[in-house]
Amino acid sequence: MRNEDWKKISRLVSKRSLWMVHFCTGCGAMEMPPVMTSRYDMERFGMHAMATPRQADILLITGYLAVKTLKRVVQVYEQMQDPKYVIGFGSCTINGGMYWDSYNTIKDLSKYIPVDLYIAGCMPRPEAIMDAFLKLMDMIDKGEAIGWKKYRKYYDQYKRNQRMAFAYRLDEVKEIKEDDAK
């Protein structure tokens, strides 16, 4: 069996067994229960909510991220084991949503961690979530969900952006700028 075939089978199986850990910060978490329970029942696709990032494949971020929260999100993301996927849920993760002008909320999640898939809407309906899951499965099958590879590849870039977001004194920002120049 060639390595390529092996990978194909592996992807085929993995997409039917996606475990996720929710990072529920905003109001969007409200929409998850219908997805899990008998109305939509995501377990049909072998999806399951897990308790810890070590066990999970998907990091689902449901809402706005304050800078402090982002720190934790990054840690959670880094504690997950490859291959891992991130789904940004709701417009807050895309552009800040209703917090677009907040000094303390990050606007574009994909600057800090690689997001495989966004679900637009404020807030998205369960149908949209189900659709996103199916789309993610499709992407995994085709080998398009490569956020975890991107994170490895552009690690420095992501780290720089994270530092930039976490910096709250001017000299820290200056330091980062100096590092960039190097």
Binding site: S10, V13, S14, S17, G46, Q81, D82, W148
Partner: peptide, 11 residues
């Protein structure tokens, strides 16, 4: 599927 997936994890 679950067991297979877990053993197929990269890290």
């Amino acid at each position: 599927l679950d067991v297979f997936k877990l053993f197929a994890k990269k890290t």
